[in-house]
């Protein structure tokens, strides 16, 4: 059995009496790619945000690399260096150049050597085809370029785990492929462990080892990807797939 990197047990999130996430249980193996699927409002984004402490949860535990997380802000600051996250709206810092966006984490948080960090950042930029944009400001980039920089910014911290929260949802269609290729490449070449929330079913099918299907804050099924896309275990998931155009 593969080594588990993340375990989520009995995770509950609610506001007053209203449940957002209900008894969430799953684990992720090292090197595994899990996609979270489900209709809008099912709690996918909330769940993925719980995994790096951007959302609080009321009950349950998250265990990362064998250690149960004590969810204080201070602990999360440490853990977030190991769990990279990329958002739908890129959220580069507009006051900093591309290079400074990337270097902020490595040099200020991790106190890496500036020279080495810079060289590595350039290598990463080259990998995503943006080596000429190191000194550009985010406002000079297209959406797809910004999102690539956001991915590089997360990778520069040497994370063990990546969370992708609908990273192609606000991109123009012709930009989507490039971003998905980068994520695919991370899975294939780097064997990066990741959780991907997406609405791109073709991509999910292509990249995922396993699918977790969520509805109304419940996990309805966890199925190996091949099986999920040929025959889901639940009718609800099948109806969801049938409604998607792919």
């Amino acid at each position: 059995m593969a080594e588990q990197i993340l375990q989520v047990e009995h995770l509950e999130k609610y506001y007053q009496k209203k449940y957002v996430l209900h008894d969430i249980n799953f684990h992720v193996d090292k090197g595994e790619v899990v996609t979270l699927l489900g209709p809008s409002g099912s709690g996918k984004s909330t769940l993925i945000r719980c995994l790096n402490g951007l959302e609080e949860y009321q009950q349950g535990t998250i265990t990362f690399e064998g250690e149960q997380i004590n969810p204080t802000e201070k602990n999360w600051q440490q853990i977030r260096q190991k769990i990279g996250m990329v958002f739908q709206s890129y959220d580069l810092f507009p006051n900093l150049t591309v290079m400074d966006n990337i270097l902020l984490g490595p040099t200020k948080v991790q106190k890496q050597d500036k020279f080495a960090a810079k060289k590595e950042a350039l290598d990463l930029l080259e990998r995503v085809g943006l080596e000429d944009y190191a000194n550009a400001y985010p406002r000079e980039l297209s959406g797809g370029q910004k999102q690539r920089v956001a991915i590089v910014r997360a990778l520069a911290l040497h994370p063990d785990f990546m969370l992708f929260d609908e990273v192609t949802a606000s991109l123009d269609p012709e930009m989507v492929r490039g971003i998905l290729n980068i994520i695919q490449d991370l899975a294939d070449v780097d064997h990066m462990t990741m959780i991907v929330v997406t609405h791109e079913m073709n991509f999910a099918q292509q990249i995922a080892d396993r699918v977790i299907f969520l509805e109304d804050g419940h996990i309805l099924e966890q199925t190996p990807s091949k099986q999920f896309f040929s025959a889901t275990q639940t009718k609800r998931a099948q109806a969801f797939l049938d409604s998607m155009d792919f």
């Binding site: 902020l104 991790q110 910014r153």
Partner: peptide, 10 residues
């Protein structure tokens, strides 16, 4: 949030 996500403290 994206600042927090790269581990920045307050």
């Amino acid at each position: 949030e994206s600042g927090k996500a790269i581990g920045l403290n307050r």
